[in-house]
Design a protein around this nucleic acid. Structure first.
Lengths: 340, 340
DNA sequence: CAGCCTCCTGTAATCGATTACATCAGCGTC
DNA sequence: GACGCTGATGTAATCGATTACAGGAGGCTG
């Protein structure tokens, strides 16, 4: 808590001017070798740490990027953020992470307060008037919102849903239920649209249960599914969590996966491969998404050119594990399942 | 990207001095009512946002707290961080989240760069020389390290392990295996020590498998367990993730839980109650931990008094679900299990 | 009406680092 | 030796907000 060391203290200790210290630290090449050594020694001796506020104020450039995520609770974001940190770190930029739902005021202060040069936005549900008003370069990642009129990057969610349907169709399933995500979410819409397309293309009639991304939503969907007289033989859920909830509840109700119902998730979270049964799911290359978004933002920042417009879409990849299997022509009832 | 609005612009628009604008924004009570209205209108009209760097530099107080977590990948931290954000927000403090493993340099800049007033540290494995050198108030949360000589808050990990052992003991288990966490981790040590204590107190001999916190570690432990000739009938794992991995692998090897082995986890993550079987585990009150730590830090910051020393320990709470059951006197072998 | 107090507002110094510009030493060239 | 050039360093203005201090208007008291 002692008074902080200022650049002037280092300068005094090294017997040079503050300008020289500053130059030694930011562009070592232009100071004499001997001077540089003396300054470095003084820095070490005094334990000097640059004052970020002063530097940012003068430079008018905080050299940081801000990551806004709607819910840090979501395991999903962690790896993305790690990748962003990686790219940013290489470029000498700091990374700040903030909850995009922390309240408008706090958010505006973070964004407009001059603490960041650019933003990676993982939330598509903020007020468009607010987002459009931001004066910093922003890139949307994973989620998006056309009303923001911003560039973005995501996997091709609709195509992913089509791949899922085709996998199930190829296994012989004709009655496929989609447990859709929250109705207000863009990802839900895209996945649902892709599902409907693919079903139509195969001449099948889509069945949809309005669900959510959570375990609870999946469990509820399992009950709804179990109550259908002529039950669909396959389910495509809006997220892995939802699939976990669905499958767990199925077992509790006496059904088995994939024997009684095949299930495909979405995201390929860490746990998906270890679940019982290991979950067939759409893989989201989280490290790649984070890296690519960060690279695009960083290069725009460094070159001073604005970010291009439009969305980059990464083609989907289905990871086939054991929660899906061929549709058995002879269907068993739940009662039979229980007996085994 | 247009030139940012400065306080002088607002002052000009409102026909007052910059001092008045500043006062209107920070202590509205001391400016005249009419003036205040004019200033507020000008602020709205110009879209003025305070420049954080300038304010911080002048105030010598960023009004922010920094949360350092070793791995944002861990779902575990999310709820803690949300609680911290809540408390901090009420006190008018911003919250910054950073990866404590992002690299020494970046870390030092975050910590010593004057961007934060205080720190919540969720990592006990940083270099003590570095941490001890920090000039800000720091409170350790969940993990801790005696070498830091800092105050902290955590659940009573040793007591928790004792509770787990006693629960299993009361169910009639006498052969209990502990799948310990990473050897270098404090939590692992405390839980292991509590395990050994409780076993000794019951006159049982502790069996320990050196594992880890991950799903993979749990799966590996399941193999090790299966290879023991006279298998323990109960397992206490170092984390829920580890328990999930253990149980999943058990099923894959043909064993059932809790029929063939009772399992207790640690943390009570969101998924624990939805797992198959629902997991008996030690509950960590994450919101409470976050809130309490933040409150202690914030009140120290506001009053200017240093944080007290010493650790606060929260008593453990065991959530009993279905992964534990009474030890069946007549043990079945894996072969028999497979047949059923 | 002088004197004083209160309430509000303006002036200007200040926080700490950066950097344009000035300065100076040393060297080579004509 | 005068001149110009290069490379290293110092001087001082600057970024934008805060706030100590000064000042002025208006009201109240004696």
């Amino acid at each position: 808590m002692s008074t902080r060391v200022r650049i002037a203290d280092v300068a005094a200790a090294a017997g040079v001017s503050t300008a020289t210290v500053s130059r030694t630290l930011s562009s070592p090449g232009i100071v004499g070798e001997e001077t540089r050594a003396r300054v470095m020694a003084a820095v070490a001796a005094t334990g000097y740490r640059i004052n970020a506020a002063a530097r940012d104020l003068r430079r008018q450039q905080p050299r940081a990027i801000l990551v806004l995520a709607p819910n840090l609770a979501n395991t999903f974001f962690s790896r993305i953020i790690a990748a962003i940190q990686d790219v940013a770190g290489q470029a000498g930029l700091a990374v700040q992470i903030s909850d995009s739902r922390a309240g408008t005021d706090m958010l505006e202060t973070m964004v407009q307060g001059g603490r960041a040069d650019g933003i990676v936005l993982l939330d598509g549900a903020l007020r468009p008037e607010m987002v459009r008003n931001w004066k910093l370069p922003v890139i949307q990642l994973c989620e998006w919102n056309d009303d923001y009129a911003l560039p973005g990057l995501q996997i091709d969610n609709a195509a992913a849903a089509r791949v899922a349907v085709n996998h199930l169709g190829d296994l012989g399933h004709t009655r496929i239920l989609h447990v859709a995500g929250p109705s207000e979410n863009v990802l839900s819409h895209a996945r649902r649209a892709g599902f409907e397309d693919a079903m139509a293309a195969r001449g099948l009639s889509p069945e949809i249960h309005q669900g959510g991304f959570t375990i609870e939503a999946g469990a509820a969907a399992a009950h709804a599914w179990a109550n259908i007289a002529d039950r669909p033989t396959a389910v495509f859920t809006a997220s892995d969590e939802c699939a976990f909830g669905f499958i767990s509840e199925c077992y509790r109700l006496g059904f088995k996966v994939p024997r009684d119902v095949s299930v495909i998730g979405f995201d390929d979270v860490d746990f998906a491969g270890h679940f019982l049964p290991p979950l067939t799911t759409i893989h989201q290359p989280r490290a790649r998404l984070g890296r690519q978004a960060a690279e695009r933002l960083v290069s725009a920042l460094q070159s001073g050119t604005p970010l291009g417009a439009g969305y980059d879409q990464i083609p989907p990849h289905l990871v086939i594990r054991s929660s899906t299997s061929a549709c058995s022509a002879s269907k068993r009832t739940a009662e039979q399942s229980l007996r085994t």
